[in-house]
Amino acid sequence: MKIKILIYFTFILIISAVIIPYSFLIGLTLFGFIGLLILDRFAVKELGNMKFWIFVFIILIFIPVTIGEKDASFSLIKYSSKNLLLGIQMTLRSICIYTGVVLITRNISIKRITHFLERMGFSESIYVLPIGLNVVPIVRKNFFQIVTIFRLRGGFRRNRIRNLYKFLLALLINTIKMSEELAQIIELNKNNKKPSPVK
């Protein structure tokens, strides 16, 4: 029963953080904290993650002070009030999403999430969503590799359109190859046929 409540709570928290107007975000963050305390009070420790708070500091202070039209000041430090407001909104939303993610990862095993999604009728999403999330660093690496290759071969100075087309083609071919490799790995895992070590 608790697991169900946890899943629904996290789902509502994350979706609301995206959907609701900014003025309600403070209320939603409080709702998230109270939920966190009731459902898993030990998870509050996880919110003490330094990386997360450095990120929050950058959004809240660094951006309004450095970017945008500086129309207000606090103790001789000029800042952009528009960007500060945006920073607060972004921070509150990040806290809501982070709270939800912490709750889910601490309390529910992947098997349970899989089972829950299967029962909801989203059986494919169990495989597809993690692939989508984990592909980010690989795509980034591939992108910069191809950019470097193109730069070494003369860049985009001449025949810009033709070179851009070739660049897109290289990216697409790389992506397709990556997908094929991943499909093979999924198939191997499914059949429990692990490749034998090279002798």
Binding site: E124, Y127, V128, L129, P130, I131, G132, L133, N134, V135, V136, V139, R140, T175, I176, M178, S179, E180, L182, A183, I186, E187, K190
Partner: peptide, 19 residues
């Protein structure tokens, strides 16, 4: 034509669009 292949392609192309 199999399910694993479709899943891999959907995941990767969806991931790239999302990024």
């Amino acid at each position: 034509k199999n399910r694993s292949r479709n899943l891999a392609f959907i995941g990767i192309f969806g991931g790239i669009w999302g990024i």
